[in-house]
Design a protein around this nucleic acid. Structure first.
Lengths: 158, 158
DNA sequence: CTGGATCCCCTTGGATACTG
DNA sequence: CAGTATCCAAGGGGATCCAG
């Protein structure tokens, strides 16, 4: 079905705890889609997934690769990812603690899907940039233009 | 290329302002992918896009449909979407102001891509839920188990 | 009706320090 | 090395009031 792959615009299939349409979006606790979206969209998750998709890495390795991340956020991100079954955490009981992180099949699967979105962005980033420039320009010059054109089409509606 | 559709795990193609790999992720201003991801991931954007994909709507209509949203956030979300060229805003110069919002082809295109991600989530939400349950259970009982198993494999690494 | 401006709370996320 | 706990700043986001 190319018209609508899923049930409702609210993006919560009735297979979940609460079948709903848009109104129920407010009860986001019940919405898996929202959860996943929030997860992959948060500041660092996507990057961690991308990194681990290439090879398994240790905590410090990830931290060094990402560099801008704080240990707090890396730990938190990894824990979230682990909890969702996207990342597997392996603790090696050695004297200097060693922990390896790797993508689970589920995580790899998600990454594949995300790639489509990333590809889209790369293909359309120029259009978006152009739109932003246009919007920005209109915001400066558009005020006077809108004012001038206003009276030409004013009609009553009440 | 089924191995890697895009240049780097940092998800910023060298077609952008700053060709980079992961290190440069910190300079997120240059990263279009990050921008789009943040946009579609914020609390309301996706819902607005989904709604507008069905038909164009007025401000109040959107507000009534979403219901949980504040006018502040709806206005802000729409402005962002408009700036990115994903939504088209049409002002009708009538006495009670009337503004219609509709998805641009670019916005519709993005929505199509997002659907793949949504579908993935719907297909795997049970796995994720199971993983969470397992993680949660392990978090409670796993403490003692990890402690017991620790001495069985302890080795020196220094 | 369509927003912009303001106030205020709460979460996200960075920096730092401490533990195992 | 691999985290956890605490403190703190910035921003997200709701409520309300006001303007066009």
């Amino acid at each position: 079905m190319e018209d609508g792959t899923f049930s409702s615009p609210g993006y919560c299939a009735d297979t979940g705890p609460g079948a709903f349409d848009v109104k129920n979006w407010d009860a986001r606790e019940d919405c898996e889609v929202r959860q996943i979206l929030d997860r992959i969209a948060d500041k660092w998750s996507l990057l961690v997934i991308a990194l681990l998709d290439e090879r398994s890495m240790r905590f410090t390795e990830l931290r060094r690769e990402i560099d801008g991340i704080s240990q707090r956020m890396l730990a938190r991100t990894l824990r979230h990812l682990e909890r969702d079954g996207l990342v597997k955490r392996t603790v090696h009981p050695v004297v200097p603690p060693r922990v390896d992180y790797e993508l689970t099949p589920l995580g790899a699967s998600l990454h594949s899907t995300i790639k489509a979105l990333v590809s889209w962005t790369e293909e359309h980033q120029s259009q978006i940039a152009a739109a932003r420039t246009a919007y920005d320009a209109a915001a400066s010059a558009g005020t006077a233009a809108a004012d001038a054109g206003a009276d030409s089409g004013s009609v009553r509606a009440g």
